[in-house]
Design a protein around this nucleic acid. Structure first.
Lengths: 241, 241
DNA sequence: ACCTGAACACCGTTCAAGT
DNA sequence: ACCTGAACACCGTTCAAGT
């Protein structure tokens, strides 16, 4: 008789395969898969089941490497934060550096769509978050701010950046839900609808909104983000000794 | 034979009751019930099923009055916004009025815990949102700002207030999940843990965070909100002609 | 017009059982 | 130690059927 191992078991035999080569799971691989799903399908599509599917197994298999969904989300956020690059600190150029930092974090969060939601929710505790915190905090202190005010300023910049990115991610999700691909097209359609709505308002009760509709929809997300960032930076500058 | 209507049908009869007096549903009642649930059990506890339960029926019954869950959330948000009170506009005191407005919205959102999440997500379209918008926009324009900058400033103040309230609501949810009731107790426990964690960091890599731990946890949510609000207001003031 | 039960296609997490 | 199937207790929404 020939060795039976080279021959596939015929379907009618219904024998169970002799223990499949068992995928090797790991926290890193799980985070990889999770981030891939968030990037392509959005945060709402991320479920333990969906991640497990990526490894051809059930959700229970993930719990050996990850405590729960919340931890997985924070691990994904930390992974994303690893993408930002911090320069050498130069207190004499604190405003410029703080601006660049804020825009870099905003860019990275926006690139990964709705990871911003996690950013807003999570308390900085991973290595990358703390490194970022040390950068901003140190910069403000070295530029002459009191630790107390530097702490407050850092906190507010962080809230602003993540809050704006989060808001953006919600629009992004809405775009996806509407079946659109081009952010510009979405913005125009969206702004157009809003403008029509505003124009239809009764003039007596909403005179300003009605009159300056074009100004209300003039700036896109990027410009609005920049404007608010400058407001904050100027406020901080006014508090620098 | 006595009239059988005064006698309860015996359990073994298993007759079905002759059409119960059918609860009268309405959009208002549904929003009421929804807000009540959010206030007492949190936004995460709000589900169509949970709301329906309040009327002793299944979730399908709600769909005659509300398009879907998203619409219900926006209706709840609008209801909450109705609680803010807007004063007579006085452009000569724009900064004071804008500050009071921001704090009032923040207060109302915070009072209803995590309705802030909806606020951040939703585009202003209900009557109360538009009224609030007209107030801020008109105030800034009458104080002398260009419509374009007034539009940007209004947008950034809105993002800041709702973003901060949302962040606060996440802490609130965490407090509830930890089984605590007193926000002050939660803050102290939370800040204490954070401080311990920061103190344990390696000094070489995180010198500033490590050194000024006390300053990092000195201010609570209210003070941080106030600080950021003043940063923005000062930035806006610097742009007033 | 309004309401409903049942069904569909999902969730996160646990647990006993396997290797 | 790691992995798994099955189960538990949930979701939002649809739809045919009732009144």
């Amino acid at each position: 008789m020939a060795g039976s191992e080279d021959v596939p078991t015929p379907p009618w035999r219904k024998s169970r395969k002799p223990a499949p080569p068992k995928r090797q799971l790991s926290q890193d691989l799980i985070v990889d898969a999770g981030l891939r799903i968030v990037d392509t399908e959005g945060l709402d599509a991320l479920s333990m089941r969906r991640v497990a599917q990526e490894f051809d197994t059930g959700p229970a298999s993930l719990y050996a490497h990850v405590a729960n969904k919340e931890e997985l989300l924070e691990l994904i956020y930390e992974r994303v934060l690893g993408e930002i690059e911090l320069p050498e600190r130069d207190p004499s150029r604190w405003k410029e550096q703080l601006r660049a930092y804020a825009m870099e974090v905003h860019r990275v969060l926006t690139a990964h769509a709705d990871v911003a939601r996690v950013a807003l929710a999570s308390v900085p505790s991973g290595e990358n978050s703390i490194l970022a915190g040390e950068f901003v905090f140190g910069l403000l202190i070295e530029a002459g701010m009191s630790p107390r005010e530097a702490s407050l300023s850092m906190d507010r910049i962080h809230l602003y950046v993540t809050g704006d990115a989060y808001e953006g991610s919600l629009h992004y999700a809405r775009m996806r839900a509407a079946g659109l691909d081009d952010p510009r097209e979405y913005f125009e359609r969206f702004a157009g609808q809003l403008a029509d709505y505003y124009r239809a308002l009764p003039t007596e009760r909403f005179p300003h909104i009605q009159k300056f509709v074009d100004d209300l929809i003039a700036d896109d997300g990027e410009e609005r983000f920049r404007y608010g960032l400058e407001l904050l930076l100027d406020g901080i500058e006014a508090r620098m000794p």
